[in-house]
Design a protein around this nucleic acid. Sequence first.
RNA 1: GGUCCCAUCGUCUAUCGGUUAGGACACAUGGUUUUCAUCCAUGAAAGAGGGGUUCGAUUCCCCUUGGGACCGCCA
Length: 464
Amino acid sequence: MPKVATRFAPSPTGPLHIGGVRTALFNWLFSKNQKGSFYLRIEDTDKERSKDEYKKQIIQSLKWIGIKHDDKEYIQSEKISDHKKVAEELLKKGFAYKCYCSEEEINEQKNNAKKKGIPFIYNRKWREPKNLSIPTNVDPVIRFKSKMSGNTIIEDLVQGEINISNSTIEDFVILRQDSSPTYQLSATVDDHLMNITHVIRGDDHKINTIKQKQIYNAMKWKVPNFAHIPLIHSNEGKKLSKRDNDSTIDDYIKIGILSDALRNYLLRLGWSFKDKEIFTLDESIKHFGLSGVGKSPSKLDMSRILSMNETYIKNINEDKLFSSLKSYCEIYLKKIDNKFDDTLKKSLYFLKNKAKTLGDIYNNAQYIINDQIKISPQDLKLLDNLSKKILNDFLKEFENLSNLNKENLEKVIKGLIDKYKTNFKGVGQPLRIALTGSKFGPGIYDIIHSLDKNETIKRLKTVN
RNA sequence: GGUCCCAUCGUCUAUCGGUUAGGACACAUGGUUUUCAUCCAUGAAAGAGGGGUUCGAUUCCCCUUGGGACCGCCA
């Protein structure tokens, strides 16, 4: 058995979307599971639309989610001469032919087909050009002589047997008028050149596979295995496109989704392994297989993504969480001053329990990462005279505490509850407002733990 | 329109002929809690419809219905 090789072959004509990321992930996982290689091929032959920034963005996105490709990226446009050679060879061997139809002629055929309500398929006029004279004013395209009878069958690793009648496949163009190769040719030649053993791609490529298989056969190349994975659908139940909301990976990065969480979510979208939901990277490599891929399309579910993110925020290593938080805030919100690092680090253990996204942590940490807290007018009203008296009493006792552990603080608060005949809220709420500027937030003991003695005293004095 | 594909709770899915059809998210209720959360418990929630095959179908086959993909000298 040859070593397994997979590839992800995006075209750099726009930001990478989430469906692409999942396809890349499946390819990558499959190859790693099989101890094989995974390559990235940039299909940049559409010169008009391909942009270098998108290429960079694609590489960046894959890196972010933890997918590393082997070797350096394979740039399709650098291999054009190879593709052309194959076209020439196909022509020489009689598997392809020159077609001198003008664009107008093709368009006319299309329109006629439309009028009659029949499917358009190129009429193969130049396949047997016995009585045709070659026009001098049009450059030919080269078309592949697609089989006209019989069926082509693919043993798809996900879909099972795909059987399509050859009569529905037209003589597709492999070399354009300007003699540049088309996708069908380039992709096939490259997959062959790269020794790809498993082509795992979206289900929208099925017909392409039928076409491409004919090229393999004509060239007597070994046909790779194919796996067509179902597409990801938008909320409307349609193939996800770049125009849909929350469709690119950046959409998720910018709301503070962790790469591990998105990776895990995408893994479980259309793939399953028993009842298991949470997979570490190693576990996903260990368990991934094409037999676990479902056949039906799946919808994106934001609440599930958020919930997965919540799980990861709570469970990943705190140092990792901390650095993700810092860089996320710097890029998408506001840089957190390094002087707050220590305080923030030691507060993460409770801040993370209240967060679904990195942005939530940022919001809940406002009282830590600002020198001055802001108290809203409504909350300020809650700090009435009685509350201030309580705070004052608290301050006096607090200043004498040598150890800010829960037991000591509890004792002080209980004393005040008794003295003022109130409940915990009577003491806790003013304290929370004075220390954080908000009614809502972490527990009092946690807040004091994070602020430490001096800062707590300072803030209590400020409100009095 | 043609070709092809798909079909289990709202969503992601388990089940590979015999289950009270399981789990997760979301949702509802209750409990823990100083607030918001977390956490815990409980609940509601599914085999599209119709035919077969079979002792027995969610599972296999056919039809219907519904949804989707493709039909470029884009990739």
